[in-house]
């Protein structure tokens, strides 16, 4: 057991450790964005639900109306939380796919014979 000679570490770091680090930064960013978005959604809906549950004496709306509005707000909140999770996952997929693409391009640079050059790009 032991590390390989120092001279052979550099390509391994460039080829694998660096992209892994980049992937972790991407994942951490997405995670942060998700929690930030979640906090925003909760903040928006908390205020709206509280408003709808308070009886408005000027409009004369009864508590039944407020309950209906609050139920709609709660359902909107659940939908938005779900949509946020899916959107962040799609962005994560897209960003990781870009990283994957750049890795594939880097690896094929050493192949100088044009006939084997990678010509396609990831669709995602």
């Amino acid at each position: 057991m032991g590390l390989p000679p120092t001279g052979q570490e550099s390509p391994a770091i460039t080829d694998f450790v660096l992209p892994m680090g980049q992937a972790m930064v991407i994942a951490a960013n997405r995670s942060l964005s998700y929690w930030f978005g979640l906090a925003q959604i909760l903040e928006n809906h908390q205020a709206l639900m509280a408003q709808s549950l308070v009886l408005d004496p000027t409009s004369g709306r009864g508590p039944e109306s407020g309950r209906l509005t609050a139920a709609d707000e709660l359902r909107a909140l659940l939908r938005e939380v779900g949509e946020l999770a899916v959107r962040q996952a799609r962005i994560l997929q897209s960003e990781l796919s870009d990283l994957d693409e750049s890795l594939a391009q880097n690896f094929q640079q050493s192949d100088l014979s044009g006939s084997y050059r990678r010509r396609w790009r990831s669709k995602i």
């Binding site: 209906l68 139920a71 709609d72 359902r75 909107a76 939908r79």
Partner: peptide, 9 residues
């Protein structure tokens, strides 16, 4: 039916 905005969506 007395449905809401989420049903409309």
């Amino acid at each position: 039916q007395p449905l809401g905005i989420e049903d409309w969506r």
